[in-house]
Simulated scan of single mutants.
Amino acid sequence: MLAEPYNRLSPKSVEIWRIMGVISGLFLFVVFAGVITLTVIFHWHLLFSIISFLIITIYFVLFVGILPKMKWKRWRYEIREDEIEIQQGVLVIKRTLVPMIRVQHVDTKQGPLLRKYHLATVSISTAATVHEIPALGLEEAEEIRTYISVKTKVAKEDV
């Protein structure tokens, strides 16, 4: 078996994933706050409120506390002469090899959170799918985009 890729995402990605966990958790909180309110208004069984509170607590512990760090430890990538290897996952680790010859185009993108932390995501498009390397430093993302685009041209010229 090949050695695992050696490049990691920016350590700032952990903070970004935590912020995204809080944002999505707030929507969940609003829903369960409604359930708790209805429990009080209609004198439903207290179990509804307890279950709602437990679900919110478990969600925040997992998606804000534990999973972002685990996700960062597992997320790796490596860009070689003729292929791109991406490894991701927490419980189930997925490794993907993308041949340079299959790459159609490469993009970098930034949302508001990534922009605030001076990060970008590199999107690698093939005919079948889009592969992403998230939360890279801006300069690193630009270097990767340029390198892949040059290698893609060379790979297609050799065919």
Score class of each variant (00 low, 15 high):
P99V: 02
Y77L: 10
T129D: 14
I66N: 02
T57R: 00
K151V: 12
R102T: 13
Y117T: 14
V106D: 00
F53Y: 08
G25N: 07
A135P: 06
R102K: 08
M1R: 13
V98I: 11
Q104E: 12
W75V: 15
V150N: 14
I50L: 03
W17V: 01
S149C: 13
F63G: 05
E81H: 13
M70Q: 10
L2T: 14
G21C: 04
Y147I: 15
I51P: 01
T121V: 11
I86T: 08
V106F: 01
D107M: 06
V30Q: 09
R102C: 03
S10Q: 06
I124E: 03
K71D: 12
F29S: 06
I16P: 02
V98N: 01
V40C: 07
I58N: 07
I16E: 04
F27T: 02
V22L: 03
E142I: 07
Q88L: 11
G89N: 08
I144F: 04
V106K: 02
I58G: 06
V35N: 00
F48M: 09
A127C: 08
Y6V: 15
W75P: 12
Y6P: 15
M100C: 03
L2V: 15
V92F: 08
V103M: 00
V90Q: 04
F53D: 14
M100A: 02
R145I: 14
I56W: 07
Q110W: 01
V90Y: 03
I51T: 05
A120K: 02
P112N: 12
V90H: 05
E4I: 14
I23Q: 03
V150G: 14
L119I: 04
S10Y: 01
E132I: 08
L47F: 15
A128I: 06
T121Y: 00
I86C: 02
H45I: 11
M1F: 05
G111N: 06
V90M: 04
A3R: 05
K73P: 10
H45E: 11
L67Y: 10
Y77P: 03
D158K: 11
Q110D: 08
E140K: 09
I50K: 01
E81S: 09
K12M: 05
Q104F: 07
V92S: 02
L91C: 12
F53V: 15
R115F: 08
H43M: 13
D107N: 09
G25C: 04
T96R: 01
E83T: 15
